[in-house]
Design a protein around this nucleic acid. Structure first.
Lengths: 337, 337
DNA sequence: TAAGTATGTGGTACCGGTTACACATAAAAT
DNA sequence: ATTTTATGTGTAACCGGTACCACATACTTA
């Protein structure tokens, strides 16, 4: 592999000139430029990114720390992040934290040592102290769907509370009377907000009772269990709003096993808008987040922070949209009494 | 950030000794060791990975090039690769090639410049010349589910042909008479082999005809279209074996729209064993590949090649397993005539 | 005409590690 | 008593770039 000094020698100029030519920093004569071009061509020279990284403390690499890439929410997000990153000449390192603080920290250690240019957090454990520590060391951080207490970094999120209300309103509008909510683990701000939105939307209704709220785990299995428990406790429920799509899928599964018709007897609505919702039977109504756009945005923001084009830490709240599908098809008058 | 020279100064020794201590290469006196430890502690020293990379031409980074992480087959694979990699102290770079040669090549360019230690290919376009070029430059490559013509790298794959036969046999065993096959794009060796396996299994049966084989695109949409075409052409089909799960999901969707009962009138079987197969209604029978194990294996092999523990290029063929589910429930005698 | 400015280039220290080599000492082998 | 051998440490070149600074010309401008 040829080095910059080889090129310099062959072109008959100094390495400084080559470097200036490569980075378009400073003056280079047109004729010199031609000679350099030829030399580079002849030697098949490619500047070494590691050396550049060492000299310039910039590696053109960002990290994406998420709980688990095999959670169906994240592949699309990761794809968006990588698309944008590669468009800007950055490379993406993938980290699965399983939402465990220890793993997150250990990734961060490694990433710092590797002179990573910035980090996207879609994982949950980190507190604002950790984030501040990063940003102070000059490593930009952007968070997804989580807000460190003190605004210590930019944040991209979507309107969970509003989304939850949208879901409830939609369920009411199709004639549902008793709408239950399966909420996710309250460590997740998304789960908290969706629960809050649900409560806000239903608390004024006469049937309202905390017993309609039941905990899930943001996964299919938890959705199943919660639904079983719920239907036992409240056989009169005619709609389930799940805190995310996976739990909604679980609800669908559980109801099907119990022989309960969806949407005939119970309507089901999820949250997130993952691809899975289109392949269930019936297809699942969901409050869709713009997952790809979120990933693209978070990536773009990070890169702008890295390149100094963006200064202030801001919170970006993206709109969600209700996607009505078969699982909440309107009742023909004969809504449950 | 403290450097090795700071540590050396504080500990009152030379950088060489620090380096030897850090890498456990060469002698270091026990007392010196203690002094170094203290100094490192005091300065909160962390060796700089980029500098190490430059000096040692080893970055402890591998790349995973796949078509698209949002294709449901790959997240689990990626997770496995990353799990094993991080276990061995490696970091994983994610690349989405969309199966486009241009993108693959451009990723490879970047990766080479970054002194990446090795590459896992789960993408399809590369020919053996490209691979050879890599391996000659000392960058180990391991391929997944694709065999470069001349064995120029290690390969991990699964028994596609056998799997296809398994599927056909299973469908026959539950009483199916006319089994169609939706095959994937023939650029993919997996599609080719599964088609071959199918043909081999059915060509001796009296109803056999090439018209039972129909092309899909390895995605849901293609599965739908192929199924529509197929049912029009052959209303007498009583089983569909799809070349992958996504197309099987498409088949399920199409049949449902047509009002065809699954498995009552037509049984459906997929291939791959992605998570989605468990959430369709009916749940989908599939020939499951050990996706996680494949990822873990491919990652382990790559790292062994990097570290020189493994020499010869080998092909690892993993077993597949038929997972019978609702979409191929046994008929009660009344199979279609 | 002198000073100022835009253009063009080279020398070299530096980024933060690794490692070959030289050198010193103490213990073991001959 | 002398040569080996094992142990321990330091000097400095090197990995392959970047960028500051000095220096040389050629035009402008005052």
């Amino acid at each position: 592999m040829a080095t910059i000094r080889d090129v310099a020698k062959l072109a008959g100029v100094s390495v400084a000139t080559i470097s200036r030519y490569l980075n378009k920093s400073g003056y280079v004569n047109v004729e010199t430029e031609q000679k350099i071009k030829k030399a580079i061509e002849a030697l098949n020279y490619e500047p070494n990114a590691v050396a550049r990284g060492l000299a310039g403390k910039k590696t053109n690499t960002i990290a994406l720390i998420l709980p688990d890439i095999s959670n169906p929410f994240f592949p699309e997000l990761a794809r968006a992040v990588e698309d944008v990153a590669s468009m800007y000449g950055y490379t993406v390192i993938l980290c699965n934290s399983d939402d465990e603080g220890v793993k997150e920290k250990s990734y961060i250690e490694v990433l710092k040592k590797k002179y990573i240019d910035g980090i996207i957090f879609a994982s949950n454990t980190l507190d604002s102290a950790d984030v501040e520590q990063m940003t102070k060391k000059g490593i930009p951080v952007v968070c997804l769907d989580r807000v460190p207490p003190k605004q210590s970094c930019s944040v991209v999120r979507s309107k969970n509370r509003e989304g939850a209300k949208l879901a409830v309103e939609h369920l009411l509008s199709i004639g549902c009377r008793k709408i239950a909510h399966i909420y996710g683990p309250q460590e997740f701000i998304t789960a908290k907000e969706r629960l809050a939105g649900y409560e806000e939307a239903v608390k004024h209704l006469d049937w309202y009772s905390p017993t309609f709220m039941i905990q899930g785990d943001f996964r299919i299995e938890g959705g199943i269990r919660a639904t079983e428990l719920l239907m036992e406790r409240h056989p009169d429920v005619d709609a389930i709003f799940a805190g995310n799509d996976l739990m909604a899928v679980g609800a669908l599964k559980a109801l099907h096993r119990m022989g309960v018709q969806v949407p005939g007897q119970v309507a089901v609505c999820g949250f997130d808008g993952i691809g899975m919702t289109e392949i269930t039977q019936p297809e699942l109504t969901t409050v869709a987040q713009p997952i790809y756009e979120m990933g693209a945005l978070v990536s773009r923001i990070l890169i702008k922070k890295i390149e100094g084009t963006l200064e202030a830490d801001q919170t970006y709240e993206l709109d969600v949209a209700l996607v009505p599908r078969e699982s909440t098809l309107r009742r023909n008058g004969h809504a449950s009494s």
